[in-house]
Design a protein around this nucleic acid. Structure first.
Length: 506
RNA sequence: GAAAGGGUAGCUCAGUCGGUAGAGCAGCGGCCUUUUAAGCCGUCGGUCGUGGGUUCGAGCCCCACCCCUUUCACCA
């Protein structure tokens, strides 16, 4: 018996004893099925369900957890929670049988147990739609007490007492969190809908949803440290993917005009409010398009998502409303920096750029190239100020080894990030499809790696071979699903949009 | 990786100056056939995160460690 169980022993022993008692009186605490034909929310929404003489009205059959209970001798009220919400049940000894009521319901059923109810719908004296039970049946006996909260409405505001609010326990036991905190169920329902809407948007655009390897012999497509694993039979090292970019581009080479994948990616880096070791990204590649086209696409898709989830393009996030209505501003990176800091980095030498960085309080060192310096200044002075959706375009080439050189601006690539609520939510570029240029960029990454940059990309010989067969001009996109879900559901931690955020072992 | 805050009953939380560990809810025993944080009477429940130390005496002070949260750093 573990320590925790020991301290629970009294409550647990009591519950187990109730199981025995149930079996002794011939009640199966875990029956196989129950025919459900109604949900709490539909019953409450249905104006016509209450007959003039309710006892002659339509019968409903519902199932769910007993959440609160008010027993008044030979009759009782309790709240039954199903997936859709909560509905009150009125149960009387004389309707469901003396033993069923006195012994099973009153003595042996606890809060949190799952029960089935059949009966008719009526309104109580205080006007609450309630099911008058004619049949009561235990469907699953819980042997652990659930942390029941109580709530009351005052002046239209809902006040919750004793809510199950300990974040550690909520994350470790998400099943309990979902039982007792209905708003948590809503967040994840919204996240699911968000993904579905994006998926349908891309499918409706004619693109193919695909799957690519998670276990990769060479990881690539992003600057990040990987998780390493081992294949026993092949006796070889494999990496968990940090991105699926290089595989999806191989498929574009193969002749598909548009492919996308919702991809669980893994990065062996720090954890925070914005970072989980595994996270979800959707990547999309579309042939014969460039990054300008992709900006249009992102705008349209995310405007559509906001409308689908909220019925409006304005999404509440913290103290702000974020408006996804297109078009969004498109600002070249150097211009955005000039707007915020007054510093014009255009055409500066490395030395001049370092001075400029210092002049706005950005720390620089000798190892930094122009691209890194620009990136630092942007991160320090611009990014967090961009609350409304904004495209920042034309990134330094050093930071973007897989992006195509800008068609007119020296040292830049055709890349954009969509920034929203001060954070990147999308990253895209005109994909580099010149195999010679790509090889050189990889070689620069290899040099960085040799200098100790363990986030630099590895040279992927097979990917280069694919490019050598010819990849059409292609626009590529990545959207962080968890980050977007945080915005769309107004949550300020990634752990609140992941069912099972990573935790150290108990 | 660093700093700050936290860990006390199943849940939410008090705990003063170091002096026998508390409340509400849940549970348990009663009363109560339209209640709704139902009510009323009674009652059980603790390895105070873990391990050391100081002290006559530690939830409280000291040391080490574990876990969580927040912020910072890196990134998406």
């Amino acid at each position: 018996m573990s320590e925790q169980e020991q301290s629970l022993s009294e409550l647990l022993a009591l519950r187990r004893d109730k199981l025995t008692q149930l079996r002794e009186i011939g009640v199966n605490p875990y029956p196989s099925k129950f025919d459900v034909d109604a949900t709490s929310s539909k019953i409450i929404a249905d104006e016509t369900i209450i007959a003039e003489d309710p006892s002659q009205g339509k019968r409903v059959s519902v199932a769910g957890r007993v959440m609160t209970r008010r027993v008044m001798g030979k009759a009782a009220f309790f709240n039954l929670q199903d997936e859709t919400g909560t509905i009150q049940i009125y149960i009387r000894r004389d309707d469901v049988g003396t033993e069923n009521y006195n012994t099973v319901f009153k003595k042996l059923v606890d809060l949190g147990d799952i029960v089935g109810i059949k009966g008719f719908v009526f309104k109580t004296q205080t006007g609450e739609i309630t099911i008058h039970a004619e049949h009561f049946e235990l469907l699953s006996k819980g042997v652990r007490p659930i942390p029941i909260a109580k709530e009351v409405e005052e002046d239209g505001k809902k006040i919750v007492y004793d809510a199950f609010s300990d974040k550690e326990l909520r994350y470790r036991m998400r099943y309990v969190d979902l039982i007792v905190n209905p708003e948590v169920r809503d967040v994840f329902r919204k996240r699911s809908k968000m993904v579905q809407e994006m998926r349908m948007f891309m499918i409706d655009s004619g693109y193919l949803e695909v799957e690519t390897p998670i276990l990769q012999p060479i990881y690539g497509g992003a600057s990040a440290r990987p998780f390493v694993t081992h294949h026993n039979t092949l006796d070889m090292k494999l990496y968990l993917r940090v991105a699926n970019e290089l595989y999806l581009k191989r498929l574009i080479v193969g002749g598909y005009n548009g492919v996308f994948e919702f991809s669980k990616d893994f990065r062996n880096e720090g954890m925070s409010r914005f970072h989980n070791p595994e996270f979800t990204q959707v990547e999309l590649y579309v042939a014969y398009k460039d990054y300008n086209w992709m900006m249009d696409f992102v705008e349209m898709m995310l405007e559509h998502v906001a409308l689908s989830l909220h019925g409006t393009t304005k999404v509440p996030v913290g103290d702000n409303f974020i408006d996804f209505k297109r078009p969004w501003p498109r600002i070249p990176m150097l211009e955005a920096i000039k707007n915020e800091t007054g510093v014009d980095l255009n055409g500066l030498s490395l030395e001049e750029m370092m001075d400029a960085a210092r002049s706005v309080g950005v720390h620089v060192d000798k190892t930094m190239g122009k691209g890194k310096i620009i990136d630092e200044i942007f991160g320090e002075h611009v990014e967090h100020k961009l609350i409304q959706p904004t495209f920042i375009t034309d990134y330094p080439i050093e930071m973007s080894p897989l992006a195509k050189k800008h068609h007119s601006k020296e040292g830049l690539v055709e890349r954009f990030e969509a920034i929203c609520n001060g954070k990147e939510i999308a990253n895209a570029f005109s994909e580099l499809n010149d195999p010679i240029d790509q090889r050189q960029r990889f070689e620069e990454q290899v040099k960085l790696r040799e200098k100790g940059d363990d986030e630099a990309m590895a040279l992927d010989e097979d990917f280069l071979r694919a490019l050598e067969y010819g990849m059409p001009p292609t626009a590529g996109l990545g959207i962080g699903i968890d980050r977007l879900a945080m915005i769309m559901t107004n949550q300020d931690s990634i752990r609140d949009v992941l069912f099972f955020p990573h935790m150290r072992p108990e």
